[in-house]
Write a protein that binds this DNA or RNA. Structure first.
Lengths: 235, 235
DNA sequence: CCCACTTTGTGCACCGGTTCACAAAGGGAC
DNA sequence: GTCCCTTTGTGAACCGGTGCACAAAGTGGG
């Protein structure tokens, strides 16, 4: 018991590990549904698409929850990971910006299934304010602070146009929010202590394009180094 | 000229660098619009939200495109990064799965602005096949291989339900696709040489929740270690 | 032409994360 | 109780990436 605390979760779980816990959780939920009682690190790692040594080290950061010679108890591990991630509590999420993406997010089932609940939708366009989407009334952005307070919102999803994102971010931060998921293609500047995660669809495609280009270059006889850049391009 | 090739892009740009190039590109485009001719690593790094040494090292992997004492020529650097990322060519993208998310992606402006063109929408549901979305006819999934060939699609975006994703992935890979952007919450298993990038909205929220929990724990007098897990939980 | 100033490109030390490989621990058979 | 088998938990080497700090390279003024 003392041992567990000492070398395990005492202080901080590596960021890389935190990012993989949801993956393990999903795999475990699948196993739970299929009625599996225990699982080895080998099998779970396979299902989550990672190396088994990495999985074991990740889990060791939470504590010593496996049984040597047997594996991990599926239900118990689900509970432990859920608790560690804070999914045993209910998180109220507000989505700001109800365009195509905001609508898609509001209707996305994956949120509710975990501990997340879309508690508010907000937009600046009077045209959409008042609309009913995914069982919620779209409220006006002027109500932002009031809505956050009233509904106990603690995570905000930004799905606004790029131009509005920083401004909205400033307001929600002033209202006490410290966790933001940003879909707008801008670099937000935020004070110390505020967590921002960014999802950028266009960037993902650009990374794919880079690799795809490399692959096709290779096909067609290697990158055409010399002619690739005409030597004297003066601008 | 030989020097540039020797220590620079000869072989491979670090993955971490590739992931940041789109960021730099966006910042540069903003500067170009505002009429800036040159920019220092300090300013560009600021705009992209990274450390200036990192920016310089990243750019040095592409070649030696700056001028000491001056900075980087904005237009020239835009050209070089675009070319490196393969954005000087036109990429035909197919979106499979025209639910809420697929629709949002089809209408998302960020794609077209870079070298990406949504060339096809496909779905299995006869209800939506034939619909016109973002100027495109939704085609039936049975046409997948034919559409990929006919339209010269080289990147596929998966926005299907989780249950269908692996099956669709297998088909597009068999049809010769080697770059996939996956929005379905599953771990796809794919052969060597196929690039998968994954965007998972629910995972991002879970990571935020983890940090948010830590923060609020700290507020309320540190994590309640002892009582947090009742010692003997036997399952 | 030379000097002072700016800014790049990079060597180097450092750090977080990954992977290997194995000792420690538990289960089950006899 | 002892032995063998399985599987965890982790020490240690390794690897990619980060950031400091500075030499090299270029600009502009006098």
């Amino acid at each position: 018991m003392i041992r567990r605390l000492s070398q395990a979760r005492e202080r901080g779980i590596p960021e890389a590990t935190v990012a993989r816990l949801p993956l393990y959780l999903r795999a475990l939920n699948g196993m739970s549904e299929r009625g599996l009682a225990t699982v080895s690190s080998e099998d779970l790692a396979m299902a989550a698409g990672v190396n088994s040594a990495k999985l074991r080290k990740d889990l060791s950061h939470l504590g010593s929850y496996g049984t040597r010679g047997v594996g991990y108890d599926v239900e118990y591990l689900i509970y432990q990971i859920s608790r560690e991630l804070g999914l045993t509590q209910d998180w109220a999420v507000a989505i700001v910006g109800v365009g195509n993406l905001g609508r898609a997010l509001a209707n996305y089932g994956g949120f509710v299934s975990r501990g997340f609940r879309v508690a508010a939708l907000l937009d600046a366009d009077p045209e959409v304010v008042g609309d009913r989407i995914a069982g919620l009334n779209v409220e006006h952005i002027d109500e932002l602070e009031a809505v956050i307070r009233r509904r106990g919102v603690s995570i905000v999803v930004l799905a606004t146009p790029a131009a509005a994102a920083q401004q909205v971010a400033d307001r929600v931060i002033a209202a006490g929010i410290t966790s933001i998921l940003n879909f707008a293609p801008v670099v937000l500047s935020v004070p110390e202590g505020v967590d921002i995660r960014k999802v950028d669809l266009s960037i993902e495609l650009q990374i794919l394009a880079f690799h795809e280009q490399r692959k096709t270059d290779r096909m067609t006889g290697g990158p055409a180094m010399a002619e690739e850049w005409p030597e004297a391009v003066d601008l």
